[in-house]
């Protein structure tokens, strides 16, 4: 039996005159892994930020368990809500005044060394500063930081972008393990169809600011609508 964890109804978000999300409806179910795909600039990252409360939206409702609309939360409640999420930002967003070790220790003081192995990084990195590392390495540290928190909900913004195919595969299986074994509710924004097929139970395809297709990831090829099939085949 699927249980809705986060419900998004008629969500709209503009930046000035630019409409980014328009009447978007989407349910996120507990212990499921959802992939969000779509063209660059359609508002995938913005959507995740509306979901976790980092970005305000103009109209619509995002409800979570017994919270009717997260927009109405006061600052303190909002911070508590935000604390439920482990987030890998698209650009990693590591704290650049701190070393890798300090970044990882930020929310959990122990056990942080084990995680390096999981994200395929050597321990020798611990004393480096994020700015001296490649974006692929930074993103794996960002992923480690998000996981270390043992969050209720994981938001991963392009976890495999910037990684070579081998490490990409390794990261995909790591996330798969988390999703399947620990049953963490996961939202993954991705351009990597490998991530979609390997660990995402469901897929939402965004087009022009709303959901154009939603369904089981393993049924994309069978049931996907025309624009989705064109999109994944790289056709216009």
């Amino acid at each position: 039996m699927r249980k809705v964890k986060i419900r998004i109804k008629n969500l709209s978000k503009n930046f000035g005159d630019k409409v980014v999300l328009k009447n978007l409806n989407l349910d996120i179910y507990e212990s499921e892994s959802l992939a969000i795909i779509g063209e660059s600039g359609t508002g995938k990252s913005v959507l995740t930020k509306c979901i976790d409360g980092l970005e305000d939206y103009d109209s619509g409702i995002i409800s979570y368990e017994n919270i009717d609309n997260i927009r109405n939360l006061n600052t303190q409640k909002k911070n508590e809500y935000l604390g439920k999420f482990g987030i890998l930002f698209q650009n990693a967003a590591l704290l650049d005044s701190l070393t890798v070790e300090e970044n990882l220790k930020f929310c959990k003081k122990d056990n942080f060394k084990k995680i390096l192995n999981d994200v395929a990084l050597p321990e020798s990195l611990l004393n480096e500063y994020p700015n001296n590392l490649s974006i692929g390495v930074q993103k794996r540290i960002g992923l480690a930081r998000a996981i270390l928190k043992s969050p209720e909900i994981l938001i991963l913004d392009e976890p495999t972008t910037g990684l070579d195919p081998i490490i990409g595969k390794q990261i995909n299986s790591l996330i798969k393990k988390l999703v399947k074994e620990k049953k963490i509710t996961t939202i993954t924004v991705t351009h990597d169809m490998q991530s979609v097929y390997e660990f995402s139970d469901y897929t939402a395809f965004i087009k022009k600011g709303s959901i154009s297709w939603y369904g089981k990831s393993n049924e994309i090829k069978k049931k996907g609508n025309k624009s989705l099939l064109n999109f994944i085949n790289g056709l216009y």
């Binding site: 935000l82 987030i87 967003a93 704290l95 650049d96 929310c107 928190k149």
Partner: peptide, 17 residues
């Protein structure tokens, strides 16, 4: 710089005011 590179957002998600 922390603001535009989302480091401040990251701080918030790490339960740091």
């Amino acid at each position: 710089t922390m603001k535009v590179t989302e480091q401040i957002d990251a701080l918030k998600t790490l339960s740091t005011n």
